[in-house]
Design a binder for these strands. Sequence first.
DNA 1: TTGACTGAATTAACTGGTTAGTTCAATTTG
DNA 2: CAAATTGAACTAACCAGTTAATTCAGTCAA
Lengths: 221, 221
Amino acid sequence: MSINETVASEKNSARARWKQDPEGVRANILAVALEEFAANGLSGARMDEIAAKTRTSKRMIYYYFGDKETLYLKALEAAYKKVRQGEEQLDLEHLGPREALTRLVEFTFEHHRNNPAFIRLVMIENIHQGRYLEQSAEIKSLNEAAISQIERVYSKGAAAGVFREGLAPLRIHWLISAMSFFNVSNATTFSMLFGPELHSAAGQAALKGDVSEAVLRFVAA
Amino acid sequence: MSINETVASEKNSARARWKQDPEGVRANILAVALEEFAANGLSGARMDEIAAKTRTSKRMIYYYFGDKETLYLKALEAAYKKVRQGEEQLDLEHLGPREALTRLVEFTFEHHRNNPAFIRLVMIENIHQGRYLEQSAEIKSLNEAAISQIERVYSKGAAAGVFREGLAPLRIHWLISAMSFFNVSNATTFSMLFGPELHSAAGQAALKGDVSEAVLRFVAA
DNA sequence: TTGACTGAATTAACTGGTTAGTTCAATTTG
DNA sequence: CAAATTGAACTAACCAGTTAATTCAGTCAA
């Protein structure tokens, strides 16, 4: 009377009950690595520390990822993918140009704020002169969408006469990114040097308003 | 750093044969350390590498600075002092409010561009959550000037009716800093992801114009 | 149905190169 | 001389990556 049959037919739960969960282990390692690299940089992060925070062992990290740099690269790619996926939630098609742009700016501002670990990885990449980003064809392909989204909003607004002519969408994107990114990336030192008021809840709300205002005035006819 | 100091101490020892130049050696170490820390981060920089690039030895670095973290902190302080000194060159008193603000924005934009190593150190500090900046009372005292300079320009403009009321100078400063800083800090990854055109000579000129335009439109009545 | 077999997944202990920091004696300067 | 400064060689800790042995789940032949 087949204990064996029972076990065999429940192979999913049998698997879950005991061990052997390669995908879960991989994902767990990547999540921990993202946090550790974001907190300490590539050279500052410690493999033993990462290992200790996973539910598996150091040996398994090497088993799945080979070496520290590869782990870093995979964590970077995973972070990019996650962030870009989040961006797809935004739908601007049914809005007028000004509303659409306001919405885009506010969304971008919030989205940066909600992904500080990602922001830090990008900072770290810049310190390395993009040595790892460079190796990832995958990441490079993900960025057209951001520009074409602005393109659509901008050309609609320019046609309607509410936005001035002659602005490259890329420059608008740059402006929005600059402020949204800096708000997170430099929060610590800015607060230390100039006081924490802009990073309180009220301060952040005001700043978000300022950023929208600045972008809208910038493109206004 | 201390071309001045070096020259001064060279004058002293011009006749007297060689050696014993503590100030010059110190300054030389700091200058090298700034570059190395900016290029590699605190944990990424190597003391032997720094030593090799100075005109003195690793032993002397420990003699003067004690340990790696202290060296980093002193390099950070020296970098701040140098940058803040550069800012004092700007005189806006004789200009009208709009011209003064344009001038301030363009100067800040250029000044950031001319001090990439400093920018990188600030990024690195942000990754460390300002752990070292925190320890330096000296640095914190240097930043009132930036705000009060904007305050003077802004209140003149508001009084004249060309700037709208109700803006905190700190928020204007934030806006200028955000764009000037991001332009340097994220140049590498931004170019990789969106193409290098904004970081060519022409692109930078356009961007500088955009930043002034954005700030002026933002404060305009 | 069982038991030997396979390959993937996992563990603990180890290794060797690297790197921050030190020792100690020698040299210079006042 | 005594205090400050310097060089060469050393050391102890650290840390990325490895070794080698083990466990587990499924497979297949008898």
